[in-house]
């Protein structure tokens, strides 16, 4: 039987007065490249944030390879939404990527040569090495997203969570990111992506979770990515011809 990388049991999350995720059960097998899709306000980002402990759930439990997240931080990397940070912050691309090493360093210890080397390698991988000393506000949207990706790569994790990595990026960057994601999967990593563009789901991903406050369906793209589930998720009669 294949290993379960991330398990979510009976997860319920409420923001202020409004419930946003209800009784979610998920078992994400190791080595999949999974998209989380659903309409706006379906709780896609919230699901990731709850798994990562950024938001406290009201009920439910999370397992990363069967253990609580707190004990497994080293196995997990996170790419937040690009808009969640202040890009005018006085720092360079290399500096941001170095932040990916802070988790393994722990409190107070400073990054050294090994961390810098890892950061440079990650920058190379996303094609941003020439921009390493660039101030982050002077990067394009696509370049900023690559920097975020590189920061996650530095964490050298087993599971990657990404919140809308394709939002506001150019076509070249999108292709580059997809290639990196596929490469990650090839090396046995698990990648979980909050995704918006339904058209590209079959092309980019092999696993999909439909989410709209409740979990609608989860499984391989080839078997569950169909009009029926899309309609259930998006409410209105959803007809897109996705078979290419």
């Amino acid at each position: 039987m294949e290993k379960i990388a991330v398990s979510v049991d009976d997860l319920t999350v409420a923001y202020n007065y409004k419930p946003v995720l209800w009784d979610i059960d998920l078992a994400i097998p190791e080595g999949v490249l999974m998209a989380i899709v659903g309409p706006n306000g379906a709780g896609k980002s919230t699901l990731i944030k709850a798994i990562l402990g950024i938001i406290d759930p009201i009920a439910g439990s999370i397992g990363i390879y069967g253990k609580p997240y707190e004990d497994q931080r080293q196995k997990v990397a996170y790419v937040p939404q690009k808009g969640s940070v202040d890009w005018d912050f006085p720092t360079t691309a290399l500096d941001v990527v170095m932040m990916g090493t802070y988790g393994s360093l722990g409190w107070i210890k400073r990054p050294g040569k090994a961390q810098k080397k890892a950061a440079l390698e990650a920058l190379e991988k996303v094609g941003m090495l020439p921009f390493k000393n660039r101030q982050i506000s002077q990067l394009s949207g696509g370049q900023q997203q690559r920097i975020f990706l590189a920061r996650a790569l530095v964490q050298n994790a087993a599971i990657y969570f990404m919140d809308e990595p394709f939002q506001g990026v150019d076509a070249t960057t999108e292709k580059a990111i997809v290639n990196i994601l596929k490469e990650l999967r090839k090396t046995g990593k698990t990648v979980i992506v909050v995704h918006h563009d339904l058209q590209t789901v079959p092309e980019y991903f092999d696993w999909v979770t439909f989410l709209n406050v409740k979990k609608i369906a989860t499984g391989p793209v080839s078997t569950i990515f169909n009009d029926d589930n899309l309609t259930k998720t998006y409410g209105i009669n959803y007809k897109v011809s996705l078979q290419q």
Binding site: D10, P19, W22, D23, D25, I58, A59
Partner: peptide
């Protein structure tokens, strides 16, 4: 109250599921 009620609803939903 909400914490209890959300819990209640989660519980009911769980039974339903």
């Amino acid at each position: 109250q909400q914490r209890i009620e959300v819990s209640l609803l989660t519980f009911l939903l769980h039974l339903n599921n």
